[in-house]
Design a binder for these strands. Structure first.
Length: 759
DNA sequence: GAGTTTGAAACT
DNA sequence: CAGTTTCAAACTC
């Protein structure tokens, strides 16, 4: 790239140890960022090295931020292209990884720059300013800086990686596309910028580390504000002010964010009108959502995530739908949207339907990826926040009380559902229920639209309750007590259930690593990618119908299953496959016995994942070995009672690591963020994160996600592992896990044959 | 839309 | 812990 030649780059390069951004890796970078988010954070903080690398990014970011201020003529940019790329990537990070917040701040630092990155930064900024003038110009060019921001942001969420393209160049091109909204964008951008701030703010808070970095929120905010001020100070402020609105509720495992201020702060910024076209589009579906409550509360709350989510959604949805702005159309997008209306109603029923029901937002459900993207962030955020914040202490909002499901659960559920939708169900024909589910699935957190009559939605029978979400209008339940107004009841009930079964609210399906196995090997081994936590007990459905939780979750049956005549398309129970071959049923039992050990191992895996899900992101992130977490047996922690029944066995063996698990569990702290993030990433990304961690970042995955074409994304079945992404990611995990045979089996993915069931 | 089937959850 | 009942989703018609 000419840019490289440019004195500026040279200069920069000299300054910072960090090599010039790897354009080719952009995608990787993005992923990496994600991964970084997951694990690396520590590294980031730990080593100054990181900073340098980030610096350039930071600079960029600042520029981006500043862009709005500066209007530029577009052209200089390309030289910068590289820089721009990095720049955006940075944003991606910001968006993607909360952890990144630090980085971002640093970036923003330009304002403060002196503080953070002493040398390089200062230099960088200069370079930026000087040499980069081009850059700024670029950004400025974007003149649309706004547009850039918006674009970048949007892109960042989803495509962070792709953003590269979006670069100024795109800006230009995008403009054409964007033109329509440019005016809006400018405003929107402002908002977004603000939103970012908010995000950072939030993220920062959670992670003490970040704080330690010395990132001054104020500074950031200021910087941001400044930039924003240039454009719109107000929006930013409002957003910032909003931050406080977020409240995290941690119940041992279940962190839940609640948008306390949902109504308060939101109104101004969130109003779809204010939002960028994309945003609007996203919102549109939920027009009803106009009120922040509707959508904000649940997931988006976390960070500006709602924005992020919006963005992502917009990206996917819009793209999928057609143009970004399909927004208006967005409403049309899917029948799903039609469903959204309920959200509004919910809105009306503030009490009854808690925040969590963002389902409306999901409208894009069709796009599984979108859902993932959206969900993850939210969840991630939530966790982060959670970690940072303790439980509901804050929960001023009723929503806060919402029964906290494991995020993971939700996510997984989403996956499962998604997978279900995608795979199993022929797309549901028509039954409204099915459709609903799909929608819900997309959201992940969205209400499940239960129709409980006798359980009052206070039992696991109730999907909403089981998912940790309040029932909302879409639900047709009777005598529902799963509402904000009955928070106490809900919580107490939840506790009771958990006391009985600590894992009651844990995700039913655990997505381990290994997508690949699922499809292929399942015969012998259950697809490692995901497994049902407890295992199903199907007898008549042959695990071929949704009655089977495994099948419903889009995962193969595992040893832990007690199903009869398992024919799970996602993977038969290990024993079964062998049995089927050798001995039909009897063997099954025998196998069970024989397999027990394997089961234990498997269980461990499952458990581990669960644990990871719960908190342990650390494991994932920090150590590939995280797997070790398996010992999760510890998992049970939350509920004082350990679950008796469920998984203790697994715990038995590898106690060694359990500590981690335990740690992870209890602690949701900063690590939690990472871990959660990681988990989340895994869940959502399907291991892609792990890939990133490994360094395997597969552009593909990123591509898929990023790809403007929803289509790519839509199909993804995280859970099933169908998606290549998952596979890749899984591998990593598996590798890390080597100790366990079963895991090894997972590893098989790479070498399917190699797999030996754990013995 | 009503009725049946199914398997998990809850209960004993 | 095992067996039974209850429940709501999934499915069929």
């Amino acid at each position: 790239m000419a840019c490289l030649d440019s004195p500026v780059f040279n200069f920069i390069n000299n300054l910072s140890p960090i090599p010039p951004p790897k354009p080719s890796d952009t995608a990787h970078n993005v992923q990496l960022f994600k991964s970084s988010d997951l694990a690396p954070v520590s590294s980031i903080f730990a080593s100054p090295h990181v900073n340098p690398a980030k610096e350039p990014k930071i600079l960029i970011r600042d520029d981006s931020v500043q862009l709005p201020q500066d209007l530029h003529s577009p052209n200089s940019v390309r030289t910068r292209v590289g820089s721009t790329i990095t720049f955006r990537m940075i944003r991606c990070r910001d968006i993607v990884s909360e952890n990144c917040n630090i980085n971002c701040r640093l970036n923003e630092a330009p304002i403060d720059s002196s503080d953070h990155t002493s040398n390089s930064e200062s230099q960088l900024p200069q370079s930026m300013q000087n040499g980069v003038g081009s850059v700024e110009s670029d950004k400025d060019q974007c003149a649309d800086g706004k547009t850039d921001l918006t674009i970048s942001q949007e892109c960042t969420d989803l495509e962070g990686m792709n953003l590269d393209e979006s670069g100024p160049d795109k800006m230009d091109s995008s403009h054409s596309g964007m033109d329509l909204h440019e005016s809006q964008l400018s405003e929107q951008n402002k908002d977004e910028a603000v939103a970012y701030n908010g995000d950072y703010m939030i993220a920062n808070q959670p992670s003490s580390d970040m704080l330690t970095l010395g990132l001054p929120f104020g500074t950031e905010t200021q910087s941001v504000n400044d930039t924003q001020k240039a454009d719109n100070s107000d929006s930013g402020k409002s957003l910032l002010s909003e931050e406080p609105n977020y409240y995290i509720q941690n119940s041992a495992h279940e962190p839940h964010l609640y948008w306390t201020g949902r109504v308060e702060g939101a109104p101004v910024d969130y109003t779809p009108q204010a939002l960028p076209g994309a945003m609007q589009s996203q919102l549109m579906p939920c027009n009803k959502l106009n009120d922040p409550q509707d959508y904000m509360p649940t997931e988006q709350n976390g960070l500006s995530q709602h924005l992020r989510g919006m963005r992502r959604r917009s990206l996917f949805n819009e793209k999928a739908g057609a143009s970004n702005k399909s927004v208006d159309k967005a409403s049309d997008r899917h029948s799903v949207n039609s469903t959204t209306p309920k959200c509004k109603t919910i809105h009306g029923d503030i009490n009854s339907k808690p925040l969590r029901t963002p389902p409306c937002a999901l409208p894009g459900i069709g796009l599984h990826l979108n859902a993932f993207a959206a969900i993850p962030k939210e969840k991630i955020v939530c966790r982060d926040i959670q970690s940072s914040i303790n439980e509901s202490s804050n929960l001023p909002c009723p929503a806060g009380s919402s029964p906290p499901p494991f995020e993971q659960n939700i996510i997984k559920d989403e996956f499962a559902q998604r997978t279900d939708v995608a795979s199993a169900e022929p797309s549901s024909q028509g039954s409204p229920k099915k459709k609903r589910r799909k929608f819900d699935n997309g959201d992940g957190t969205s209400c499940k639209r239960c129709s409980c009559k006798k359980s009052k939605c206070l039992k696991l029978y109730c999907e909403c309750f089981a998912a940790g979400v309040y029932c909302s209008e879409p639900c047709t339940c009777q005598g529902c007590l799963n509402t904000e107004s009955h928070m106490e009841t809900v919580l107490s009930t939840r506790q009771q259930i958990e006391s009985r079964n600590p894992l009651a609210f844990a995700p039913k399906v655990i997505h381990t690593s290994e997508p690949g196995l699922e499809l292929g090997d399942f015969s012998n081994k259950t697809p490692a990618s995901a497994r049902h936590k407890r295992g199903c007990n199907c007898k008549k459905s042959s695990c071929l119908k949704k009655y089977c939780e495994c099948f419903q979750g889009g995962v193969g049956c595992s040893i832990s299953c007690r199903c009869e005549g398992c024919k799970n398309a996602f993977g038969r129970r290990e024993g079964v496959a062998a049995l089927s071959i050798e001995e039909p049923k009897e063997a099954s039992e025998e196998n069970n016995a024989c397999v027990k050990e394997e089961k234990c191992e498997i269980d461990k895996q499952l458990v581990i994942y669960q644990a990871a899900d719960l908190a342990p992101a650390e494991n994932l992130l920090t150590t590939p070995s995280m797997v070790e977490c398996r010992p999760l047996a510890c998992l049970p922690p939350p509920s004082s009672k350990k679950s008796s029944s469920e998984k203790p066995r697994s715990s038995t063996k590898q106690v060694g690591h359990p500590s981690r698990l335990c740690n992870s569990q209890a602690p949701l702290k900063t690590d939690m963020l990472l871990s959660q993030f990681g988990n989340y990433a895994e869940m959502v990304l399907g291991d892609s994160t792990s890939d990133t961690l490994k360094g395997n970042s597969s552009p593909q995955t990123s591509v898929k996600v990023v790809s403007p074409n929803k289509k790519r994304v839509s199909p993804p079945r995280m859970g099933t592992g169908l998606s290549p992404i998952c596979k890749s990611g899984r591998k990593l995990i598996l590798k890390s896990i080597p100790s366990f045979p079963s895991l090894g089996g997972d590893l098989n993915n790479e070498d399917p044959k190699s797999k030996t069931p754990a013995s």
